[in-house]
Nucleic acid binder design. Structure first.
Lengths: 116, 116
DNA sequence: TATAGCAGTTACCCAAAAGTAACTGCTTAC
DNA sequence: GTAAGCAGTTACTTTTGGGTAACTGCTATA
């Protein structure tokens, strides 16, 4: 079964590509916040109660580089910055959905399985 | 829109639950290897070419604690150990699928988008 | 004119994650 | 009897991720 092994290797590579982008404590939460519409820096910070401005800024920059998030600067005075998901960012929708569903499923399992 | 905000908070929690389990460089790859059937320690190690025995052992233990993986010891002589996915482990199938699809999608996007 | 809000940045520190290398005890095959 | 494969473990080091606190420059509001 050489085919099977090649498929396995292919999947391993694909998973690495994906993980490279979404890895870390804050990226998924940031993306989730942005699925609720365009958001300002401070708004995201309020959504994700325990993120520091340093981490938010750092991770937003990373997500921008991966073309997941776009940053629009409105040249009003006091600077207003608007973050939003790109098309590529929105393409994470299905993955996010599965992640959330599984998160809920997992919590139910561990709560109910005092048996086992 | 108080509802919207509560839903957002709910999703943030669910994502944390899920991430706690699948976070890290090696867990997803290990789970992928195990979707190809029950596997011995050495087989997983060969699937995932660059994992060290230390990391494999450590992550398998963690996945066992989360009830994602089960370890069966055959008391033959030379010890044979068989790892497999639990039901909970198999329930990650949909998530893995989305992850892999997105990984492929992402790679295609960044390869083709020399424009932008 | 002092305070608060906007959108961050900077320097410093610590803990966790991961890598490296060597070693274990067991058995079978050469 | 020596090498190789099984399934790991141990000690040590490096790297990275993330936390904390203080600070920036700008503006609107009280």
């Amino acid at each position: 079964m050489k085919e099977k092994e090649q498929l396995c290797q292919f999947k391993l590579m694909a998973s690495r590509d994906a993980l490279e982008v979404i890895q870390g404590k804050w990226r998924i939460p940031i993306i989730i916040s942005l699925t609720y519409g365009n958001r300002r820096f401070g708004e995201i910070q309020r959504d994700i109660a325990d993120i520091s401005p340093k981490m938010l800024s750092q991770e937003l920059k990373a997500l921008e580089e991966y073309k997941i998030v776009s940053r629009r600067l409105h040249d009003s005075m006091p600077v207003a910055v608007e973050y939003s998901l790109t098309t590529l960012g929105h393409s994470l929708h299905g993955l996010l959905d599965e992640l959330l569903n599984w998160g809920v499923h997992f919590r139910n399992e561990i709560v109910s399985n005092n048996n086992n």
